[in-house]
């Protein structure tokens, strides 16, 4: 009998769920949602942009985080200081400021040197998303670099020595032992880092990238509604975070955990 009463079915939770449902129904009925159907395509485009920003910056940022971490762990002094300095500066200043520095700072440069407009890169440079992508990537690389640095140093020395003792080359030790073990150690924090990254993406709206947040802002401007679009935005981000957490938990469970 007891196992039928799953956590979700506890009486107070049922009541709370009912209250929440009642609240949602009240919101749906009393608030103004007539703008929603016509704006669905734009919202979808915005969502795709948000996801593209997230996925792109996580993948590239992670690739950059590895050298940043390795340089700090075993690099020659200049490289070590450089990557340490990079991580400190990026982690010590607001992402919004970095974003505006990239976008408007470089913009001031373009105004001074119109020659840049003739270069092959101009079609990209004149768009907004590359700057958003750059800032997000750099930020993810710095934070993840710090995590990976800890993970690399955290791999027990004995394991590496054992690998060397059986005659593995340094590269093989890295590829087969050090890196997989470090990655394994860093995996539990990865979910949190990716969620944090998702939460940073709306900042790109301030440099005219049309992500989900920007679409909602535009809707707020045309409908002049204070709450409804913002509440929809909260709901969408809640869903995205939930899906990400589930997906990463699934991934984590697939990695064998032998200690």
């Amino acid at each position: 009998m007891r196992n039928i009463l799953t956590p979700m079915m506890m009486p107070h939770r049922l009541i709370m769920a009912a209250l929440a449902l009642a609240g949602l129904t009240a919101m749906a009925l009393t608030m103004q949602w007539d703008w929603l159907p016509a704006n669905l395509p734009r919202l979808w485009d915005g969502l795709l942009m948000t996801l593209a920003m997230l996925a792109g910056s996580v993948v590239v940022g992670f690739a950059l985080a590895l050298p940043l971490a390795l340089f700090q762990v075993m690099g020659p002094a200049p490289l070590r200081w450089l990557s340490l300095g990079f991580c400190t500066v990026i982690r010590g200043t607001p992402l919004l400021l970095q974003l505006w520095l990239f976008y408007f700072g470089l913009g001031a440069l373009f105004a001074q040197f119109p020659e840049i407009r003739d270069s092959w890169a101009w079609p990209y440079l004149r768009q907004a998303w590359p700057y958003g992508f750059l800032a997000l990537t750099v930020s993810f690389a710095a934070y993840q670099g710090e995590v990976m640095r800890g993970a690399f140093t955290g791999v027990p020395h004995g394991e590496l020595e054992a690998a060397r003792a059986v005659g593995m080359s340094p590269w093989l030790v890295f590829r087969r032992v050090w890196f997989p073990r470090a990655l394994h150690r860093a995996l539990p924090t990865l979910a949190g880092e990716i969620i944090l990254q998702l939460k940073s993406t709306p900042l790109v709206a301030t440099i005219t990238v049309t992500d989900l947040y920007a679409v909602i802002t535009r809707i707020r401007q045309t409908t002049l509604l204070t709450y409804e679009p913002l509440l929809l935005l909260v709901a969408v981000y809640l869903c995205l975070s939930g899906i990400l957490i589930l997906a990463l938990r699934w991934l984590e469970n697939r990695v064998p955990t032998q200690r």
């Binding site: 939460k199 940073s200 993406t201 900042l203 947040y213 913002l230 981000y237 975070s241």
Partner: peptide, 11 residues
């Protein structure tokens, strides 16, 4: 923890 700070702040 799931919603962007920017959105929370506005709200």
């Amino acid at each position: 923890r799931a919603v962007p700070e920017l959105v929370l702040m506005l709200l």
